[in-house]
């Protein structure tokens, strides 16, 4: 009996002593930390994607608390909602950043851009890009080895087996920019999400002269400049045989889409186009158009969603 009592007492004594030591040690080595860091971190999505440019959410929280002005800092994953919560914790003015989304600027599918050779090296876009110009005649476009998909932490991308191109799932994309960094050919761009997710962009990055680009890929931008002339807002610039639409200036009028001879300019999530804009749309015409227009719209959404 006595052995049990002694054991219990001894254990209690050890426990109490250890507790006292721990208490004093904790007091002695306490590090002061702004409690708001924890609060801010709580609000952040804990994805640790690094899309904000800081090492993980904790790092971003520390930077946010330290910063005097957080209007330029943005959590691409949480977007405006999270940033407004952060602002209210820190007592800043709410700064609303325009939501952006990743866009693949290449439409060089197996059909549009025939392969001229077969890559047989390690399955990495960076390795292929340093080796040579790629499996097709276009040395600017997608290499199709999926390094962007590997970089995506949100399952927002996959490689389409039919086209050989990456596809961005718009609902899942948090615009962290990991894929943009991963792509050695700089095909992926973060663009304004646009009202109702409507966007217009040049789906090509080929800087070759028109003839060379066209020979390599049916839907390449040939740098003809028609869109530049057509654009009423001066949103399109032409540089190195390649058109670029500035999304801050673009008013989504879709005039450029029509004039592009190679269909390199893509429109996303727009309602089907009326065949003759001058005519008054009748119910019959609409019914006729819908099945015609739908496939193209679908094509584009699957490619670039």
């Amino acid at each position: 009996m006595s052995i049990i009592v002694i054991t219990i007492l001894a254990l209690c004594a050890i426990g109490v002593t250890a507790a006292i030591i721990l208490y004093f040690v904790a007091q002695k080595f306490k590090v002061y930390e702004d409690p708001r860091i924890d609060e801010v971190e709580e609000v952040l999505p804990a994805a640790n994607c690094g899309g904000c440019g800081y090492p993980g959410c904790r790092g971003f929280a520390e930077a946010l608390v330290k910063a005097d002005d957080i209007s330029k800092m943005n959590c691409p994953v949480g977007g405006a909602t999270v940033m407004s919560q952060v602002a209210s914790i820190l007592g800043h003015e709410i700064s609303a950043a325009e939501p952006t989304v990743a866009v693949v600027r290449c439409n060089g599918t197996c059909e549009n851009r025939p392969k001229t050779n077969q890559y047989d090296g390690a399955a990495s876009c960076t390795i292929a890009a340093t080796l040579y110009s790629g499996e097709t005649g276009c040395q600017y476009g997608c290499l199709g080895l999926g390094e962007c998909v590997e970089a995506c932490n949100f399952d927002a991308m996959y490689m389409d087996k039919e086209t050989g191109l990456p596809v961005i799932i718009e609902d899942k994309c948090v615009s962290c920019g990991a894929c943009v960094k991963a792509c050695p050919n700089n095909i992926i761009e973060l663009r304004n999400k646009g009202p109702k997710s409507r966007r217009i962009f040049v789906s090509c990055v080929n800087k070759d002269k028109g003839a060379v680009a066209k020979k390599a890929c049916d839907v390449a931008c040939i740098g003809c400049g028609k869109c530049v002339k057509e654009c009423p807002f001066g949103a399109i610039t032409l540089e190195n045989n390649l058109a670029y639409i500035d999304y801050t200036k673009c008013k989504l009028c879709r005039k450029c889409v029509v004039v592009c001879p190679t269909h390199a300019i893509h429109e996303l999530n727009f309602p089907p186009r009326k065949e003759k804009p001058a005519d008054k749309p009748s119910a019959e015409a609409k019914a006729e158009e819908a099945p015609k227009a739908k496939p193209t719209a679908n094509d584009e959404t699957t490619e670039n969603k």
Partner: peptide, 9 residues
Amino acid sequence: NSKVLVAPS
């Protein structure tokens, strides 16, 4: 018959 192979050395 088939496309020429390209790979790093």
